[in-house]
Design a protein around this nucleic acid. Structure first.
Lengths: 354, 354
DNA sequence: CTAAAAAACGGACACGTGACTGCGTTGTTT
DNA sequence: AAACAACGCAGTCACGTGTCCGTTTTTTAG
């Protein structure tokens, strides 16, 4: 648009050179910042690029082995806010480091397909975010290791030989239990903790051992009514299960929920049953999503420490720039309990004599 | 792993052919499904691929002009649930059609950078989802048109000469106003409707003309207290603004909110002020997010018709496979009011004499 | 067993780029 | 004016793929 010069579509450095009245090699040297080119010539090339909007062909550069370092990011779902946050943050941090990223959302059972796509795009590292089918992901990791393609799993634990970054769910539940125990709670309701995925199982293990540490027994001192409600673990699930709890005489004094939506639903149901939160019942969520601040009272929850997770992931990805890691690395990020208004001292009538 | 054959890393069709004991051209014919190859040979190649995990180099194929049709998707944000839903659905539908997609999340002011990346990756169509800076996006669209690169904007209106798919926000607000008018409401509170972005302005225009159609005047019969609260338009914003409304004598009977979070906040504030929803005040949200069903009462809102939007987008993207459209296309998707429990008849004390 | 048809082979080219080489053309300095 | 850098030019190769074409090998039909 500048000097209304010959507006033309330029598709290669050769054409760009022709447009600028230079040799292709000269243009190439300018593009790659080589020395021995007059500033005036550099300016001519720069100007030609601007006028034509030319961009070097990434395919050709990659073929020639001079492409950008590229990470393929495999998302299990985009419907869980913390996952999306991790994705957005990771891509942002990668870009800051000059690393390109490719993103694909994968339907279950099609992980191989997406991994193939990334491999065909010559991704230098393949990263998975979310909780995939263990068998499927194990296969993929094995294949990638055999082919010496660097990889990283975020938020997926329990995969042998894989590089992983994940928050320490067991430790997180230890802190939750400790927090509730300090408040005097001795009976616990578990809501949505029966999902047969490793990320929930790990939490259940944490609860079990944490209770044991305080002399309690999960089989005796905790209760789950999940089987009563057959639906995904969302707000309505929490509401229905908590409503069932509220109708029982042996109602626990504290509820540990699988996520914040479920916890928010539980709070609503408890209030609808005439109970006060936290005076009559405490509720803890998981994830520290926005909804925690929308619930009344605000929700005590576990923060996933997304910043730290992404930072560790970034580090591991960059550590594999040249070649795969010698030994597989599993990084555990400590989680933090965020204390808000949905947890409080156990009701005096039920206070344990200590 | 199968026959524990020579496990080797194969990087090109030439190496694959060597591995299988065939000529590279023969392997190539198999890969491209050409006729004149014995089934037994096809099987040999298939097996070699499986054993070595070989994947053709996408860069080379693209360079040769035989790459997959690829769409670059530019996301303005991943923090708005409807946007993410559109993204996930669009990518899924594209994959079903054999179209590859690249996704990048863009920070404001860096659109050009991302577009350049897509162009260097030889994306065949560049799609933008979300509400970008108008000046920036106008520039980018102009450049893409000049370079004859197909493009599409989703959820962005008001860009001259661009191909767009977006819901009809004016019509949506007409329906909202009609719904409330039928219920007897004659005075309206607008919450979060003052944001200077086209997608909100369009709604405001819709409200204005809809009110006019019913003989009302937005300047006289609607009220905004947005200026009292300086923060992004989230749950807390809705709560604070609605609290301010509740303290006034000239409180409107119906509240039209910029999104569902704000509406949910407004409902909470109204209830905290001792008002009943919908008996004393009606509230309408926008987007039909999950939170609508978590609010008590459930929220009346406007559904974005994401399925239809994505379907229309898909159609427009595929229509540009060979070359850009002759004339730019702007598709408006009709939105739908979802009537739930947060809207009801106007309080009898204020019922208009009709 | 032989001839014909089918299949596989091997070489060449193009795609756009970066890097290298040798050679010509400037422009500056002595 | 001559010497000499500094700079720019033209040509070449490699990367991995698809495709074409002529040749050789294998298979099938008679």
């Amino acid at each position: 648009m500048k000097k209304s010069a010959k507006p033309r579509i330029v598709r290669s450095t050769a054409e760009l050179a022709e447009y600028a009245g230079l040799a292709r090699t000269t243009v190439s040297r300018v593009l790659n910042g080589h020395p021995g080119v007059k500033p005036k010539t550099v300016e001519r090339v720069r100007r030609a690029m601007e006028e034509t909007g030319f961009t070097p062909n990434a395919a050709a550069m990659r073929l020639r082995g001079k492409g950008d370092y590229t990470v393929g990011i495999c998302m299990e779902t985009l419907f869980t806010p913390p996952m999306v946050t991790k994705l957005a943050l990771l891509q942002q941090r990668l870009r800051q480091r000059g690393v390109k990223s490719l993103i694909e959302v994968v339907e279950s059972g099609r992980v191989h397909e997406v991994v193939q796509h990334f491999r065909s795009m010559q991704a230098d590292c393949i990263t998975f975010i979310g909780q995939f089918d263990p068998a499927e992901i194990t296969n993929q990791v094995a294949m990638l290791k055999r082919l010496k393609v660097p990889h990283l799993l975020i938020d997926q634990s329990g995969i042998e030989g894989a590089n992983t970054v994940t928050i320490d769910r067991e430790q997180a539940m230890h802190e939750v239990v400790a927090h509730l125990y300090e408040l005097g709670h001795r009976s616990f309701g578990l809501i949505g903790m029966n999902r047969p995925v490793e990320t929930v199982r790990a939490r259940l293990r944490g609860i079990t051992s944490a209770l044991a540490k305080h002399g309690l027994d999960i089989a005796r001192d905790a209760l789950s009514l999940d089987y009563l409600v057959d639906r995904e673990h969302d707000f309505a699930f929490g509401r229905e299960v908590a409503a069932a709890f509220a109708r029982r005489d042996d109602r626990p004094t504290a509820f540990i929920c699988v996520n914040d939506e479920v916890a928010a639903g539980a709070v609503v149901a408890l209030k609808e049953a005439g109970l006060r939160v936290p005076e009559d019942a405490s509720v803890v969520g998981f994830n520290n999503q926005d909804i925690c601040l929308m619930s009344i009272p605000t929700l005590t929850t576990v923060d996933q420490q997304i910043d730290e997770t992404v930072e560790a992931a970034l580090e591991l990805i960059l550590a594999q720039t040249s070649k795969p890691l010698r030994r597989s690395v599993a990084r555990l990020i400590p989680a933090a309990v965020i204390r808000r208004d949905s947890t409080g001292p156990v009701p005096s009538a039920r206070r344990p004599r200590s």
